[in-house]
């Protein structure tokens, strides 16, 4: 995974906001992962249009934070391992 990689949620998963759970969830055959706040904010931006650089910049702007890169990359590594995302 490098700075130009463009992560996208894998087609066999569906990401959606669930009002009753107040959370983003990943849906897949007969299962569901309820995402915590930061995981949801990252994944909902993984539509294949943003590079990791772009993603980090956007998150840092949205949450008025700096130094998020390591956390974002660590989560995306985990997400790729779980096959939630692939790199476009």
């Amino acid at each position: 995974m490098n700075a130009d990689s463009r992560p996208v949620v894998n087609s066999h998963f569906r990401l959606q906001w669930e009002k009753t759970q107040q959370a983003w969830v990943l849906l897949y055959p007969e299962g569901m992962v309820k995402l915590n706040g930061s995981a949801g904010e990252i994944l909902c931006r993984c539509d294949g249009s943003r590079s990791i650089d772009g993603l980090v910049a956007e998150l840092e702007a949205a949450f008025a934070a700096t130094g998020l890169r390591n956390d974002v990359v660590a989560f995306l590594d985990h997400a790729a391992q779980q096959r939630w995302v692939r790199l476009a």
Binding site: Q16, Q21, L27
Partner: peptide, 8 residues
């Protein structure tokens, strides 16, 4: 409406 999201 109650929150069900997986439907078998």
């Amino acid at each position: 409406t109650l929150g069900a999201v997986q439907c078998g």
